[in-house]
Amino acid sequence: MKLGFHVGYWGSGPTPGALEAVLKAEELGFDSVWTAEAYGSDAFTPLAWYGSSTSRIRLGTNIVQMAARTPTATAMSALTLDHLSGGRMVLGLGASGPQVVEGWYGQPYPKPLARTREYVDIVRQVIAREAPVTLDGQHFQLPLKGGTGLGKPLKPTVHPLRKEIPILLAAEGPKNVALSAEIGDGWLPLFFSPKSNAFYKAALEEGFAREGARRTFDTFEVPCSIPVIVHDDVEEAASWIKPSLALYIGGMGAKSVNFHHDVFARLGYEDVADKVQELYLAGRKDEATAAIPTSLVEDTSLIGPAAKIRDELQAWEETVVTQLLLRGDAATLTKIADALG
């Protein structure tokens, strides 16, 4: 199983030591480095910065939020970065959720699957540069209907370095996971667990079976972001992860629509997820964190002594996951790489 490095998105400012960690990841032979965005730092700018200091490691977005840019603007960024990096760009896209899409970007959220399908179609047309880009879709029209009536089909002035750039879709629900297998080159899971492998494998198989599907399991990527903490005390290691889980389960989304909550409910922690959400939305964040059992952390992470982590890694190697995306500073990446052996 390959290893990658997930820098993620910034907190209140640039991530300390990020470039040093990226350089260490390349030195260690990691396959890829990934950036993200929510409603602060963007994904493309840091990725270009890291790419300028590296020569081999693949450069991925995990993820670019589709509502943040028109599909042609996203394609322009991917096309540009692919040239500057010598063909190392991997485009990870995601729909995000209604709170961010409508609250931050001011874009409509309904029908995210249909919107994703049209979005990816346009991005691929731009990158291929085989003809002027056109689409008469429900969510996107190129040229735009109405307006001045002067719009005309265009194709990018820049010739692509590669006719295809890998497009991976972030997804948590079964319909979206199936869509990633149908129209994508890979799937970017979040809060994956070996215990949920059968559920997601079935969703992917459904997508692969659809007419026009691009890939099979043999050529499909599944880079999975996973917390790995090498530490003798499992409980202490879990305590470092629980606050983030409480945020996602309890606060990343509305009570009625929180896809992260649903992931853990499907994993068998519905009562826990409900309690965490109730406490978090009531402002009782410490209690929400304390309500998360260590078993939940262990199901979705690799924590504890190196020997324990190596033993548990076997279960991950038997799943659909093709690459583990690690987090941490340069020293942490070295320590984890040694532990994974």
Rank of each mutant, 00 (worst) to 15 (best):
residue 113 L to E: 05
residue 315 A to Q: 13
residue 48 A to Q: 06
residue 73 A to V: 12
residue 186 G to P: 02
residue 223 P to D: 06
residue 17 G to Y: 05
residue 39 Y to V: 15
residue 99 Q to K: 12
residue 226 I to F: 00
residue 162 R to I: 06
residue 15 T to C: 01
residue 337 A to R: 13
residue 121 D to Y: 14
residue 78 A to N: 09
residue 17 G to N: 09
residue 86 G to E: 07
residue 319 T to S: 15
residue 165 I to A: 08
residue 258 N to L: 07
residue 160 P to G: 15
residue 69 R to D: 02
residue 305 P to W: 07
residue 25 A to V: 14
residue 216 T to K: 14
residue 208 F to R: 11
residue 16 P to F: 00
residue 159 H to P: 01
residue 196 S to H: 03
residue 255 K to V: 13
residue 8 G to D: 06
residue 37 E to Y: 04
residue 25 A to H: 05
residue 144 L to E: 05
residue 39 Y to C: 12
residue 94 G to S: 09
residue 158 V to A: 14
residue 319 T to Y: 05
residue 271 D to E: 11
residue 15 T to L: 04
residue 249 I to N: 01
residue 178 A to Q: 05
residue 137 G to C: 12
residue 199 F to P: 00
residue 219 T to L: 07
residue 17 G to W: 02
residue 12 S to D: 06
residue 190 L to N: 13
residue 67 A to S: 12
residue 151 G to A: 14
residue 189 P to D: 05
residue 253 G to N: 03
residue 266 R to K: 13
residue 138 Q to D: 04
residue 141 Q to M: 11
residue 240 W to C: 03
residue 20 E to Y: 01
residue 230 V to G: 02
residue 341 G to I: 05
residue 134 T to A: 07
residue 279 L to E: 01
residue 127 I to K: 08
residue 49 W to H: 14
residue 248 Y to P: 00
residue 177 V to N: 01
residue 58 R to Q: 10
residue 172 E to A: 13
residue 321 V to L: 10
residue 197 N to W: 04
residue 273 A to Y: 00
residue 111 K to M: 09
residue 302 L to D: 03
residue 3 L to Q: 07
residue 111 K to F: 06
residue 320 V to L: 11
residue 270 E to N: 01
residue 135 L to M: 10
residue 209 A to Q: 12
residue 314 Q to P: 01
residue 42 D to Y: 10
residue 275 K to L: 08
residue 48 A to D: 02
residue 322 T to I: 11
residue 317 E to I: 13
residue 221 E to S: 15
residue 233 D to R: 13
residue 318 E to A: 15
residue 225 S to Q: 08
residue 78 A to D: 01
